[in-house]
Design a binder for these strands. Sequence first.
DNA 1: ACAGCTTGTGCAAACGTTTTTACAAAGGTG
DNA 2: CACCTTTGTAAAAACGTTTGCACAAGCTGT
Lengths: 341, 341
Amino acid sequence: MVTIKDIAKLAGVSPSTVSRVVSNHPRISLDTSRKVKQIMDELGYHPNMMAKSLVSKTTNTLAILLPRPAEELFQNDFFGELLRGILTQANRAGYDMLLTTATGEHDEIETVSRLVRGRRVDGVILLSSRVNDPIVAFLASSDFPFVLIGRSDSHPDVLSINNDNKQAAYDATVHLITQGHERIGFVSGPANLTVSNDRLQGYRQALEAHKLPIRSDWTVEGEFLQESGYRAMSLIMSLPERPTALVVIDDVVAFGVLRGLNELGYKVPDDICLVSFNNISLSELATPPISSIDIGTYQLGYTAAQTLIRAINEETIHQKQIIIPHRLMVRESSLTTIKRG
Amino acid sequence: MVTIKDIAKLAGVSPSTVSRVVSNHPRISLDTSRKVKQIMDELGYHPNMMAKSLVSKTTNTLAILLPRPAEELFQNDFFGELLRGILTQANRAGYDMLLTTATGEHDEIETVSRLVRGRRVDGVILLSSRVNDPIVAFLASSDFPFVLIGRSDSHPDVLSINNDNKQAAYDATVHLITQGHERIGFVSGPANLTVSNDRLQGYRQALEAHKLPIRSDWTVEGEFLQESGYRAMSLIMSLPERPTALVVIDDVVAFGVLRGLNELGYKVPDDICLVSFNNISLSELATPPISSIDIGTYQLGYTAAQTLIRAINEETIHQKQIIIPHRLMVRESSLTTIKRG
DNA sequence: ACAGCTTGTGCAAACGTTTTTACAAAGGTG
DNA sequence: CACCTTTGTAAAAACGTTTGCACAAGCTGT
C-alpha cells in the first residue's frame, strides 16, 4: 500500500507537505504542489480513509437505517425512488451511504449504537413511522445528527421529513365523495405505524365532514404487501353491505386489491373505485391505471439527505418538521361513470 | 467520546487488557473481564471503528457499485430484490454495505479508486454487464476482492454471478414457438450490455433451430425503462408485417409495451403474446399477468455477497463463474387460445 | 541595515485501536 | 526448594493521517 510517506520520500518533502498538497493548503508553492501531484498520480495514491477519519473525526458517510424487517420495503418501488433521492443528494455533497437494516428487538439499538458510538457514520437517516420507535428515542437522547423520514408522536421535536398524510387521505377521500360515493372503505397498514394512523384519521375526518357513516367493518388493517391487499379486499367484499369505493394505504397493496377484484369478477371503476398512496411508477400502468397520491418520494429522500447534511454542518435549521407536498394523480380507477345513491 | 483508555483507567487496568476483553482473548481472567465489561456497559462504550480499521486493515464493509446513471435501476423492482439478497447475506456475515453510484466517464474509475486504494471497503460487488466495462478492467488489474453481477466478455475470468441469459431467451422463445407462433419479435436493451446481447442471441438461436425467419426490423433496441417498451412497441406495430408475439428484455419494459398495446386497442394475448424477463413481483399483477423468466434475483444478490466474502477470506473458490438457474413462469400473456399459421 | 511581515516547509504530537514483547506471579514437578 | 510452565497483565510500537508550532528565507518599508 502506498502511503503519504512514500510520496513524501520520493518527492523529497515531508509527509505534512504532501498532506497539505492533498488538501489544497494555501501556503504550498506551485512547484512543490506540481511535483507531489505528479508522483501521486504515478503511484496511484489515494489517502487512507480510515486514518483520515481517525484524526478528522468525520467519516463522510451517512447511514440509511431500515428498522423493521426489510422484506416489506424492498418489494416496494417507493423504496427505490426514495433511495435515488437520498443518493443523488448525498453524492453531490460528497457523502457515501451505508445501507443498514436493524432487525430484532434489543439488537436494534445495538446496531445503531455500533454506528453512532463507534463513529462509523456522521449521521443517520431513519426510515420509520413506528409509534414509539425505540430507535428514535435512542437517537434523540444521543445528540447525534439524524433525520426521520416519517413522523414520531413520542418525539415530535426531532428533525423530520414527512408528508401531511392526514390531509392527503382527506383529499383522497373527498375526491371519492365528489365522484358521488357515499360508502367508502379503507384498506390500512399496520396500526403501529403513524403513517397508517394519520391516513386513517384523514379518511375519517373527510367522511365526518361530509356526514357520511364511518363503518368500522369497512376499515381493514394489513401490511404493505400485495397479499395484504388481496386479503383485505376479500374480507370487505364478503360483507353483506359493501362499500362502492376504497381508499388504499399503498399502491402495492392496491395492486393486490385489484387482483382480488379481478378474480371475483368486479370491474374497476364500474363496480368499485380505488384511490391509493405513493404513486409508484407502475400504478399508472395497472389496468385500469390507479389513482394515487403522489407524495414526492424522490424529494422526500433528497430533502432528508440535504437536511441531515445541514445538521451535521451545524447549520441552524429553521423548520424542524419539513412537509413535502402531495398531489392527487387522478386516473381511471377512481373515475365513476355512473352516479350512485 | 469514551475510549478504551477511559475504560482502562476506571477499571484500573491497561488499555491492552480492555482490548483483549473486547476481543475475547483467552488469557483474560474472569474477574477482570467481568469488571471491564460492566464499566463498558455503564459508559456505553463502543470501539471506534476507524481506529480499529486503521490497525486491522479491514473495514467489514462491502461496496455495491452501480456504474451507469442509477436512474434506470432504481425504477426497477429487480434492484430492490437484488439488494435484499445482498443485504441479508452481508448482515449475516457481519458486513456493512456501502451503496455507491459511479457515474461519469473518467470519474467512474476515480470513484472506485477512492474506495479500493483508500481501503474504504474490503470488497466490491459490481453490478454491470457493459461490454468492455472499464471498472471491471480496473478491478481485475488491481488484485482487489470483487464479484461481478453480470458477465464481462473482455474479462471472462473474473469472479461472477450471472444467469444463463442465452438459454433463458432460448427457452422463452421456444415457449412462444410451442404456442404456435412463427412471427416473433424482440424488444431488447442497450446493445452495449452483455445481457442484451446474450438474450438476443438466445432468441435468434431458437428461431434458427426452428427454421423461422429472423427479421431485423422485428428487433428493437431500447433502455430498461417503460418508455422504451412503449416506443419499441409503436415502432414494431407500425410495420406493414407485424409479429404475433414478442420477447421483451425486462418486465418494466414489458409494462410499457402492454400500455402501448392497450392504447392501440390490441388485446394480449389474443392479438399478440408477450414473454419477458426478471419476474418482478408486479408482473403477475399486470392485466393480463405477464409471463416472465424468473432469474432468481434474490439468490443472485445473496450468492454475490457470499462469494465475495469467501474471496475476502481467501477461501479457494472452485467455480469462478456461478450461474443462477432460471425458470419460465408461464402466465396469461403468452397463452394463445387460437393457433396461428 | 534592520525590524517586521509573508511565504513555504518540517517536526512532532495526536487520533483510538491492536498486537508483539516482556515479565511477574502462581502453579506444578522432581 | 530450585526449576519450568502456565497464567494474567502492562508497556510500547505501529497503523496513516492532520495540524499546531516553529523557523528559515525572502520580501517590504524606513
